[in-house]
């Protein structure tokens, strides 16, 4: 499991693009927002929590189809399936690896981009906390979606159609936590719900992911 994790991380960092791409996308979306809605600081402050969350979500979505597609192309996916590690473990590791290469950098970069959108000072801890708690769920749900579409050529669009509705609860609680934080209110409930969704995804979705992989490898 650890070996697989290390391999995935190495591949993500060394084999072109995937690693930095999500971050760059995140940055570009955030930069584009003020061009779209105008530079007024008060407007930006108000929409910043939601925009940051939506942009992070889209950036995470961008790299989902790489989770299994490359392994499927070069034939290492069947090898992983026949290895002593259960396929559920593979699924879990893939989700964690995806989070470490996209979710974690996004979380760390988000406060810097918060300055660009004039995010309220009180909201920064909540932004960090909600992204740290929420993006793992995004990765795991995305891994499930990637497993569903692994056999389909050019499945990227379909993947986003499948995964985006599943992202709705995470997005709602994530953005809500930051919004409450920026208004100076207590955000315990959404943060608790967010960690609940994350734990629940990691507990159950590896099984669904593994089942989907088995069907696709049949």
């Amino acid at each position: 499991m650890i070996a697989l994790l290390a391999r995935d991380l190495r591949l993500a960092v060394r084999a072109g693009g995937g690693f930095g791409l999500g971050l760059a996308f995140f940055l570009i979306v955030i930069v584009l927002i003020p061009f779209g809605v105008g530079p007024e600081a008060s407007v930006l402050t108000r929409i910043a929590p939601g925009v940051l969350w939506v942009a992070a979500l889209l950036a995470a979505l961008l790299s989902l189809d790489r989770i299994f597609a490359l392994d499927h192309e070069d034939g290492s996916l069947p090898l992983l399936a026949t290895s002593p590690l259960p396929l559920e473990g593979v699924a879990l590791t893939k989700g964690v690896a995806h989070w470490l290469t996209t979710g974690l950098p996004l979380t760390l970069a988000a406060p810097a981009l918060g300055f660009l959108l004039n995010l309220a000072p009180a909201a920064y801890p909540y932004l960090l906390a909600s992204l740290a708690l929420g993006t793992p769920a995004l990765s795991m749900i995305g891994t499930f979606g990637a497993a569903l579409t692994v056999g389909i050529r050019r499945g990227g669009l379909l993947l986003s159609l499948l995964v985006l509705p599943l992202y709705v609860p995470t997005l709602i609680f994530g953005a809500e936590a930051v919004r409450l934080g920026s208004d100076g209110l207590s955000a315990t409930v959404p943060l608790a719900m967010l960690s609940g969704i994350t734990l629940f995804s990691y507990a159950l979705l590896p099984f669904a992911t593994a089942a989907a992989l088995r069907i696709n490898l049949r």
Binding site: L148, I172, F173
Partner: peptide
């Protein structure tokens, strides 16, 4: 695959409903 999606989707649709209410 669609059956699995339906099951997982049901759980998340249920979750969305409460999230949206919140």
């Amino acid at each position: 695959l669609t059956s699995i999606l339906c099951i997982v989707g049901s759980v998340f649709a249920f979750l969305s409903r409460f999230a949206v209410q919140f």
